[in-house]
Design a protein around this nucleic acid. Structure first.
Length: 757
DNA sequence: CGGTCACCAGTTTTT
DNA sequence: CTGGTGACCG
């Protein structure tokens, strides 16, 4: 009996097809990681491939760590020399060795989103760009897209032509790049771009890596962008042993430049590619899978595949609507609590939502009910102010050329060095073409700093002292010493005693992370370096901190949930306007809605045994109340696999003014979307106006229905039918309809959207 | 130079 | 409701 025996047929085929391009279309939960790890094992043990020649690329460190773990378990020996890493860390590794060929210092620092923002702000100030007209956010996103498409400033400017706005952006882009280089820094996109440039322009380096990585595997291929595609093509260019795994239905990072064409056109790019579909799902129950399939079916232009499972039918999908997000959170927390009382573990539960902002109310409830939870995402740990401060010290010590870091800490804690002084140093530095820190070392040469000179001297002396210490003591000791010598914690306390406690805890955690890093290095027989630590820290995502061994409920966005699975998943905030988001609904680009739908598909398929969908009728967004109808994605799930429970009767009656408002809004909202369903017929607008007229004539109380018992109605999915019964259930009406083609169904009027014929 | 007050703008999603 | 920014005063 071999380790390959418990793979199914297509899985085995994928494992054994080792040479030449291979595309594995792996539906959700179809065991793709299993295939990848077994494939690696097979390459090493059966095909005699050296582990050294294998590269496996994932998107997150967590995925990389898991894959490495599983490979270790399968392959007895030599697994540690396989490169299993994320795109970004693989690139950093290459760049640390060779980026000097592109005129950078190999000790470059990596800028995170925060740093990018600071930098672009500076650029705007200097190049007289009105940040009212060109938002920093927008500039950065344009620059990022350009980089993702490998468009450098020169080409960008060329493309701009006579367009004034584009020219302005081109100028910002150019200046931004210049500043990065001057600071010896790279942003996230640069890590990819520079690596591609390096491989593109330096034949010997390209050759070197092509020889090394004879077998390449890429996970989550549907989320690769153009640079990543280019990188992979370059690396695989010689041996063409490229195996990509992905699911076009789970492509959810278009906003970040992911190009779904990479996976859809793989066969065009590699005409000799073998294509294998993995369609058996091992994760979810039949009901969950059916829900997922019937949602994703509404998308066009996807690779045809149908997931099936040998698992049982399972429970129905639970659907609950609440008055407010508060009630929704209350329900979820109590439900988790109930299940845990019945023997489930907290960690079997995950709550997924569209936007990070939704986590707050949930968190409050979880705290109130004493349920252990972990929120993934939101503000990255390393983006917190106190952490960034300490890191800025470390960066300054490590690479004096990172102006941003120096400026961040020059007056933190307060040293009486103000904005004017900082500006004067900057000016003088720019004029002389030297770095900020370099200029600051000799304050005497800077005109106008006079009184501050001594303060600058002592700051420089402090940094220089730390630089010396960095050579002598361990990383953890260095950090501790920085905190002590700068009296950082004392100042924190003085500034705002409110948050001080939490911030101190964060700093403690940073120290333990540094200790863990050093220990890690020691295990591998290396000495942890300051640079190495900074690098690791720059490339972690919040999701990486998720720990399966801890018993807590996980709260996160749908995006973060990709690749994970839980026995019970709650999808919160299933409301039109929230999910799918307002932007996607109003956009005239069909693609945007389809991306949201894929996101929904990802969410549903995270569930193994039970799926609960919740939504609220009204919700506070930015201080004002929004009234949302149930998400259109919920409507796409067949009614017979939904358990809608009994909607609770109203405890508190809403003021009538609100109701009127809601009705008006809903009427308004219905109209633009009425025509957006596939298979719309020409006379549907007439049916719609009949509904409008009907509701006026019928003039029923409580928002009224436009049809009564015995009327003929039309349903978007089930077609025409006759109303058999209408019963009042809570706030909504339960309507029984005998459909001509789809049998008799009970449904809630509110989301059945029946129109009188 | 630094602190305080008032106003304004903003929200997907993240390596 | 937040966080960030800008103006004014001590």
């Amino acid at each position: 009996m071999s380790i390959y025996d418990n793979l199914n047929e297509p899985q085995r085929e994928a494992v054994f097809h080792t040479d030449g391009p291979l595309l594995i279309l792996a539906g959700a939960g179809s065991g793709k990681t299993r295939v990848l790890t077994h494939r690696i094992a097979y390459l090493i043990e059966e095909r005699g491939v050296s582990p050294w020649n294998i590269l496996a690329i994932t998107f997150t460190n967590k995925a990389a760590g898991e894959m490495r773990q599983r490979v270790d378990n399968l392959v007895g020996y030599g697994a540690e020399s396989i490169w299993v890493s994320t795109f970004h860390s693989a690139c950093v590794r290459i760049l640390r060795r060779f980026i000097d060929r592109l005129g950078y210092d190999n000790r470059f620092t990596i800028y995170d989103t925060d740093d990018q923002k600071t930098l672009i702000k500076e650029v705007c100030r200097q190049t007289d760009i009105d940040t009212k007209k060109f938002k920093e956010r927008m500039l950065l996103s344009v620059i990022s897209s350009a980089k993702n498409e490998m468009i450098l400033p020169d080409e960008f400017e060329l493309n701009a032509g006579g367009d004034f706005a584009q020219q302005k952006i081109a100028r910002a882009y150019r200046e931004y790049e210049a500043r990065l280089k001057a600071n010896n820094a790279l942003d996230f996109d640069d890590l990819l771009v520079k690596t591609v440039q390096l491989l593109d322009t330096q034949p010997d380096i390209r050759e070197n890596y092509q020889e090394r990585f004879r077998y390449i595997m890429v996970d989550e291929y549907q989320d690769t962008n153009t640079v990543q595609f280019k990188l992979v093509s370059l690396l695989a260019g010689k041996y063409r042993n490229l195996c990509v795994v992905g699911d076009d239905d789970q492509s959810i990072y278009k906003f970040r430049g992911a190009n779904i064409r990479n996976i859809l056109d793989f066969e065009k790019e590699y005409p000799d590619a073998k294509v294998i579909k993995l369609e058996q799902n091992y994760r979810s129950t039949e009901n969950i899978l059916n829900a997922a399939n019937s949602v994703i079916r509404n998308n066009r232009g996807r690779k045809d595949k149908t997931l099936w499972t040998a698992n049982g039918t399972g429970e129905k999908i639970c659907l609950r609507q609440f008055d407010t997000a508060y009630d929704e959170a209350d329900f979820i927390a109590s439900d988790v609590s109930d299940e845990v009382r019945e023997g489930a573990a907290y960690k079997d539960h995950a709550v997924l939502y569209r936007t990070n902002a939704q986590s707050r109310i949930l968190e409050e409830k979880f705290v109130a009910m004493n349920i252990p939870y972990k929120i993934v995402g939101g503000i990255n740990f390393y983006a917190r102010r106190e952490i960034k401060d300490i890191l800025a010290y470390l960066k300054t010590i490590d690479n004096g050329r990172d102006d941003l870091a120096v400026r961040r800490i020059i007056n933190v804690p307060k040293r009486g060095i103000g904005q004017t002084t900082i500006n004067r140093i900057q000016e003088s530095a720019s004029q002389r073409g030297i770095g900020f820190y370099e200029a600051l070392m000799a304050p005497g040469l800077i005109p106008g700093v006079g009184r501050s000179a001594s303060k600058l001297d002592s700051f420089a002396a402090l940094i220089e002292y730390f630089k010396g210490q960095a050579q002598r003591e361990s990383l953890t000791d260095l950090i501790t010493e920085i905190i002590e010598k700068t009296a950082y914690i004392e100042n924190l306390d003085a500034d705002d005693p409110e948050d001080a406690q939490a911030r101190i805890e964060n700093i403690d955690e940073l120290v333990s992370k540094a200790a863990a890093y050093e220990e890690d290095c020691a295990d591998r027989g290396e000495t942890g370096t300051l640079g190495g630590f900074l690098e690791e820290v720059a490339l972690v995502a919040d999701i990486d901190s998720l720990d399966e061994n801890q018993d807590y409920v996980v709260l996160m966005t749908l995006h973060s949930a990709k690749g994970l699975e839980f026995s019970h998943v709650y999808l919160a905030g299933m409301e039109d306007g929230l999910f799918p988001g307002y932007m996607a609904i109003t956009a005239d680009d069909r693609e945007e809605l389809e991306e949201e739908r894929r996101l929904c598909y990802v969410g549903i398929t995270r569930a193994e045994e039970k799926l609960t969908l919740t939504c609220a009728r009204r919700r506070m967004v930015r201080g004002e109340t929004q009234f949302n109808r149930m998400s259109r994605f919920v409507m796409e799930i067949p009614a017979e696999i939904l358990d809608t429970g009994t909607f609770r009767a109203e405890k508190d009656v809403e003021p009538p003014a609100r109701d009127t408002y809601r009705n008006a809004r809903e009427a308004f909202r219905t109209r633009p979307f009425a025509g957006s369903y596939p298979g719309k017929k020409a006379d549907e607008n007439n049916a719609f106006s009949a509904l409008q007229k009907g509701s006026q004539l019928a003039a029923k109380p409580e928002g009224g229905l436009s049809y009564g018992v015995g009327d003929r109605v039309r349903h978007v999915k089930f077609g025409e039918g006759t109303v058999l019964d209408i019963r009042e259930g809570g706030r909504d009406y339960e309507v029984t309809v005998e459909f001509d083609g789809a049998g008799t169904r009970k449904m809630f009027a509110m989301f059945a959207k029946l129109a009188k014929v």
